[in-house]
């Protein structure tokens, strides 16, 4: 994530960049005009997308994952704003078994 806005207008041939399409694919699949008396083709078993609308922060699996991620975070640095310019997962991690004592 760079924080740069994507504001391209539709291309002359009518298509948007496929990368952007991918980011808004749920709008094309779940929004738009619906005519009740018409059939809608099945979009089950999508080849391209799964719209993951689960609540991402609840459930035992999520709790264990949070605990696991917290357990390997390096809290010794001093810049909590470091995330702005780094993608997910790019923060310095502790290697397993290393420096387990320097917390807090």
């Amino acid at each position: 994530m760079t924080g740069i806005a994507m504001t391209q207008t539709p291309q002359a041939n009518g298509g948007r960049l496929s990368g952007e399409l991918y980011k808004v694919v749920e709008l094309i699949l779940d929004r738009g005009l619906v005519i009740d008396v018409f059939v809608r083709v099945s979009v089950i078993g999508l080849e391209v997308v799964t719209i993951d609308a689960r609540v991402v922060v609840a459930g035992v699996d999520a709790y264990l994952r949070f605990a696991e991620v917290c357990g390997r975070l390096d809290l010794t640095g001093s810049s909590p704003r470091i995330g702005r310019s780094l993608p997910d997962g790019a923060l310095p991690l502790e290697l397993p078994g290393r420096a387990r004592t320097e917390i807090g």
């Binding site: 539709p10 009518g14 948007r16 694919v25 619906v34 059939v39 391209v48």
Partner: peptide
């Protein structure tokens, strides 16, 4: 999906449009 959106995109680029949800089929 790209084609569906591209057809709508053409119309939309030249004026107001009501886009259909992907997959609407009339008899």
């Amino acid at each position: 999906l790209v084609k569906h959106d591209a057809v709508i995109g053409r119309i939309y680029a030249a004026g107001t449009v009501l886009p259909m949800r992907f997959g609407m089929v009339a008899p």
